[in-house]
Structures are given as C-alpha cells and as structure tokens.
Nucleic acid binder design. Structure first.
Lengths: 341, 341
DNA sequence: GGAATTCATTAAACAGGTTTAATGAATGAC
DNA sequence: GTCATTCATTAAACCTGTTTAATGAATTCC
C-alpha cells in the first residue's frame, strides 16, 4: 500500500509537508502543493483514514445503534435512520449503523471507532446506557430514558400528551370503550402511553380500565401486524363493548384491519381506529384511509444527530428535545352511534 | 484516556501481554489473565478500535454507499440496507452507511475505514466504480454495471426476464396496449426493463412501440408517486387505447392509483396494473390489492454482503449473482374485455 | 543431570498518519 | 549591512494498539 512516506520521498519533501497538503491545516506554497498532488495522483495515494483518526482522535463517524428484533426495519425506524444520515452528512459525519440485540454479549467490546453515538432504545432498564457512560463517548438517546436517569440527553415525542390527545379525540366522538393495543412492557413509550390514556379518562371523569389495555409481546408475534390481528380477534370476540381501537403502530393497525374484515366488523361505522404512527403513503391507500399520529420520525433522527454534533462541539445541549406530533384525521374514525340508539 | 500502557503498568506486565489478553490471539496464563482483566475493569479500560485497526489493517467494517436523491429511503432501499446489515452482523462486520450523491465532489477523499464496500448504484456510467477500483478495496455492486465492465462483481435481479414475464403475463390476459412507466434513463435497470418489454412483444409477434414507454425523471418529481400520477394523467388523457400499465415501483403504482381514481377509470375492470416491486404490507392493503413482482431486496443486500465477505476471505466469487424474482398476482389485473365486445 | 523442548512473557519495531518545536531562508526595518 | 520578523519546511515525537524475535523459566526426555 502506498503511504505518505512514499509520496514524500518521491516528491522530495517531508511527510509533514505532504500531510499539510492533504489536511490543509498549514499553508504550503503553491509550488510544493502542486508537486505533491501530482506525485500523489501518480502513485494513486490516498490518506489512510484509520491512521489519521488515531492521530487526530477523531473519526468523523457517528454510531447509530438500533435494536432490531424483527428482521425487517419498520418504516418508522427507516425514517429515523434517514434523518440521522441526512443530518450527519450535512455536518460532515458518516454513520456507523449497528444492529444491537437485547441479550448483551457486549461486555469486553472495544471502544467504537466513532466520535459520538445515537442509541435508539426505548427500554426502561437499558444496560447499553450504562456501558456507554463508561466509554465517555458523547451519546444521545432516541426515546426517553428511565425517570431516574437525569444525565442522559434524549430526543423523543411527548407520548403522554399524544395518547391523551388521541383518547380525548375519541371520547369527544362519543367513544368510551376504547381498546388500547399498547406497545411492549418494559419500554418507556409504553408507560407514557398508558399514562396518557389514564389522564384522558380522568380528565373526562370516566372509569379507567386496565383490562382495556393489551401489551405487545415481540417474542410471540413474528410480524407487528400479527399483534394487531390476534389481539383484535381475541378481544373483540370475547367482549363486544369496544367502539374504538388505538393501535401501537400502523403495522399493528393493518393487523386490526385484517381481523376486522374477518369478523365482518365495519370501520369506521362499527369501530373507529387510530394508529399511533403515520405512514403517509400507506395510510392514504388503505380502505378506509387510516387516521394516525404523525410522529415525525425523520425529525427525531435529525434532532438526535444535531444534539450529538453539538456535544462534539462542546456546546450546551438540553436534557430533552421534544418533537411535536400531529394527529392526522382520515376516514377510520366517526361519531359513535351506539350511544344514540 | 486510559491506554494499554496504563493497564500494563498497573498490572505489572508488558503491553504485549495485555494485548494478548484482549485479542486472545496468544495464550496467557490464567493468573495473569485475571490480573489484567481485573486492572482493566478497575481502570475502565477498553481497547481502542482505531489503533487496533491501524495495526491489524482490518476494521471489520463494510461500507454501504447509497445514492439518495429523495429525502426518504424507499421500502426497497430500506430492505436492501436491512439485508446488508443482517448479513454483515452475522459475519462479525458492521456497516458504515454512506449517503452519496451523484455530483461527485469526492476526489481527494481519503481511503475509507472499511474492509470492503457495497455500492448501491444503478447508473450506467458510474464514476464511483472507477474511484473504488483505484482504492483496491474489494467491492461489489447492487445492480449490474456497464456491459463493458467485466471485472466488477455484482448482485442483481434479472430485470430483462422479469419484465418479459410480466408483459407476457399481461399479453396472455389479452392486453396489447401496455403503458410502461419505466425508471430513469441512464440506469442499467432501465435498459434491461426496456429490453424485456421488447423481447416479450417480439416473442408474441406484436409491434413494439417506443412511445408506450415513459421514463422517470427524478429531478422533475419530488416523490416517486408523483411520477406515476402525472405520467398516468398525461398519457391516459391523450391516448385512450391503453388497457394495462406497468409501473416502475410500488410508489409509482400508488401514483397511478391516485390518477386513475381522478380519471374515473376502474382498476382492474378498465385497466390492469402491475408494479415492478412488491411491498407486501402495502400491496395487500390497497384497493384493489396490487399485483407486483417481489424482487427480494433484502436478499439482494444479503447476497452482496456475502460476496464482499467472501472476497475478504480470498474466496473465489462469481461475476454476477442473480436473485430470482416472483410475480405476485393479486387483484389489479384481469382479462382484457375490450377485445371481446 | 544436562540437553531438548515447550511455554509464557517481553522489548522493540511497526502500522500510517499528525503535530510540536526547531531550522533556515526570505523579507522588512532602520 | 545587520538584526528582527515572517514564513515554509522538517526532524522527531506521538497517537494506541499488534506482532516478531528474543528471553528465560519450566517441563520433558534419555
């Protein structure tokens, strides 16, 4: 492999000079610059990124760690990645995409070749966070950490408010028996969503029923939509009261749609449906068009990237950055008729 | 930052010993191993990935370079990424995701900190390929390169055969006037698809009309579905003969769906529609359910990763690896009625 | 019991850049 | 013409690991 020494020797200058020509950190006379560049092209020389990183203690890479349980990334995760990549690229960083799994075999792992890290993890107790703290590489979370953890920076949606808004939206449409297909236990989102549900019911002085909440079990369902499908079948068959369903994700909502077709239940006439996410392309093509909440996942990714970059520049960053969400009303919800017979 | 020297000193051994303990490349007595590990934990030491890479000339990272014109990654690209990540992870590699754009300002770039590269690029003339050849980092393409380029390895679908099959499928359903919404000019896929169209028509001794092909123009349409929408409106309004449309992607097919709703044309009764991709979740939820071709993008990603890994292990790899595709028939195509009045 | 072999350990060289402090030539000041 | 200043260039140290060749202790062999 051709190194800086080869170029230096052939160009008749020192390696320091060649280094300066490429890094542009020190002025080199036009004459010398040209000679070096010419020799470099001739020899097909390119600076070695790894060696440079070792010397400068910078890699210009940001690590993005995503737990991937399902084989396929959801559209949401996909957009988060895209936001991160877009923003990192804009600031001259590249992204090292790391698929992580929950069963940490990551003990004696080495220190990642990254300047900063974005951890996409929604778990309540996350060993990764502890690990990252030890490396003292700046990092930020997507999704809020444990309440007790006051140091860790994060970006996220206000999930309490979102669910509260959705539930109140349904209550005002006359729905009181709402089946809530929540995400999996052990995640902070799940807690927040439940809290939002509770608050909405309290706000309207309606009884809050724990039994109306189902929790996803990623180990049980291979695809996210299976969760929506199964849960809907099981709950709706045993309990006829529900007039509305809130689904964790659009994927889960598709499962609901499938189940409902099978049960001969009509959306929105017999049942209203809201998804706690919003895949624009899909939601507009389903029948009926799906009401959902736009969480702006690409924005989450972007903000996370911005924060890491700011940390790398030693700027002050807030503990939390909340990305506002937006309820998108389409055709899957209507006024509840059952109360007005 | 705590280094191997600190650990060595405190544990009373040489750095070589500490190195061996962590890299496990040389046996170290149980006593010493324990002492070193203990000190390491005490000092919170982790081997520096960058320094290690410099010494071993290996980063255990594979670069994935994706041109991203649109802000949002398509589900297809998303799946490709996922396939790459999955397979790389399986082989102990991580993925450096690089967003590249066409206007190469990438001249004096440095040599990437990767062991191998996967280039997702479908362009016919691709400067990146030339650049990569100069770095002599092993690389593989997703999508076939220029005909003239016999060295470059690639994985891809057999796009000629795929389109041929789709067109013959439509011809056998009585369709002869097929509007083909092809991908953008200058890409090898686009050429191949056109060739497939041609071959099918020749095979059935039907006249091949260049005018029945539209080419996508990514600069013109912000979203892929706009292409399908606009092109359908324009072509169908000016020319009533078409009884079938083949759309470049499912996104484009959504655009067709939108346009067709506006035109009051019914699918499949008035018009059959096939997408040259297949987003399972979406295709099953549209109305009517969309007939498409499953290209197995995650498989493309996986195979590309496998090939790079094989190259890194100095194994022989074939010039091309073709991933078989599959026509998935749903409800958007029927027998053409117009010929049987 | 001494030579041959095995085994764990280490000193020193190495990977390929950057950076600091020193050098010496060119320019400017008076 | 001499001294001070500026400027481009460089030798050498440094970044943090791995690896080779050498060392010396422990074990095996006859």
């Amino acid at each position: 492999m051709v190194t800086i020494d080869d170029v230096a020797k052939k160009a008749g200058v020192s390696k320091a000079t060649v280094s300066s020509v490429f890094s542009k950190k020190r002025p080199i006379s036009k004459n010398v610059t040209e000679r070096v560049l010419h020799v470099a092209k001739e020899l097909n020389y390119m600076p070695n990124h790894v060696a440079r990183s070792l010397a400068t203690k910078k890699t210009m890479i940001i690590g993005l760690k995503m737990p991937m349980r399902e084989f396929e990334l959801s559209s949401f995760e996909n957009k988060v990645i895209n936001g991160v990549v877009t923003q990192c690229t804009k600031h001259g960083y590249r992204v090292l995409l790391d698929r992580i799994n929950d069963d940490m075999e990551n003990d004696l792992m080495s220190k990642d070749p990254v300047d900063g890290i974005i951890l996409y993890n929604l778990k309540n107790e996350d060993e990764w966070i502890e690990q990252l703290k030890r490396t003292n590489i700046p990092f930020v979370l997507i999704g809020r950490p444990n309440e007790a953890d006051r140091d860790t920076k994060f970006v996220g949606n206000n999930n309490v408010e979102i669910v509260k808004e959705v539930v109140e939206f349904l209550i005002e449409k006359g729905h009181q028996d709402i089946l809530f297909l929540n995400s999996a236990l052990g995640m902070t989102v799940t807690e927040d969503r439940k809290e939002g549900l509770k608050q909405a019911f309290e706000n309207y002085s309606l009884p809050f029923r724990e039994e109306a909440i189902v929790y996803n079990d990623p180990n049980k369902y291979e695809h996210a939509s299976d969760y929506g499908y199964q849960a809907t079948l099981e709950r709706l068959e045993s309990d006829k009261r529900y007039t509305a369903i809130i689904a964790e994700t659009d994927r889960a909502a598709f499962g609901v749609l499938r189940a409902v077709r099978r049960l001969g239940v009509n959306i929105p006439n017999d049942l209203s449906l809201v998804a706690l996410s919003n895949n624009e392309t899909i939601a507009s093509e389903t029948n009926p068009r799906l009401t959902g909440v736009e969480l702006f996942p690409e924005k989450l990714g972007e903000e996370a990237a911005k924060i890491v970059v700011n940390m790398l520049n030693n700027q002050l960053v807030p503990r939390e950055k909340i990305v506002p969400a937006k309820l998108i009303e389409r055709n899957s919800c209507t006024q509840n008729q059952t109360n007005f017979p």
